Simulated assay, not measured.
Amino acid sequence: MSLPLSLQRYISDLGLAIPVPLDMSFVESLQATHIARYSFNSLAVVMGEDISLNLEDISQKIVKRGLGGYCFEHNKLTFELLKALGYDVKLVMARVLKNQEQEVPRTHRFTLLNHEGRQYLVDTGFGGDCPITPLLLQPDVLQKSGNDVYRIVAKPEGEYDLQILKQGDYYTMYRFDLAVYTDADCLAGNFYSHRYPMAGFVNNLMVGLKDASRTIFLMNHELMERQQGNLKKQVLSSPNDLYQVLTNTFGLDIEWVIAEHLFDRFLANNLALLNKEDQSEAVL
Rank of each mutant, 00 (worst) to 15 (best):
N114G: 04
R265Q: 14
H194G: 09
S42P: 04
L246E: 01
I132L: 03
Y70H: 08
D241T: 09
P21C: 11
M93R: 05
L91P: 03
V180G: 07
L22S: 10
R37M: 05
N275A: 14
I254R: 06
I132G: 03
D50E: 13
Q60K: 13
V96F: 03
E225G: 02
Y38N: 00
P131D: 09
S29V: 02
R265K: 14
L136W: 09
C186Q: 04
D88Q: 09
L231Y: 03
T249N: 06
L55N: 01
K233G: 03
F191Y: 15
D278A: 15
P131G: 02
L165Y: 05
G125W: 01
Y160C: 09
K210P: 02
L81F: 06
A32G: 08
Y174H: 13
N54Y: 01
N203S: 13
L3K: 11
G251Q: 01
E28V: 05
T133A: 04
V104S: 05
E157W: 06
F250P: 05
M24F: 12
R37F: 07
L97N: 08
V202S: 06
L142Y: 07
E222Y: 05
L135E: 05
D57Q: 09
R118M: 12
Q100W: 01
H194F: 14
P4S: 06
D88A: 08
K76W: 00
F191M: 11
P131Q: 09
S39L: 02
L223Y: 03
L165A: 08
P134C: 09
E56I: 14
G168Q: 08
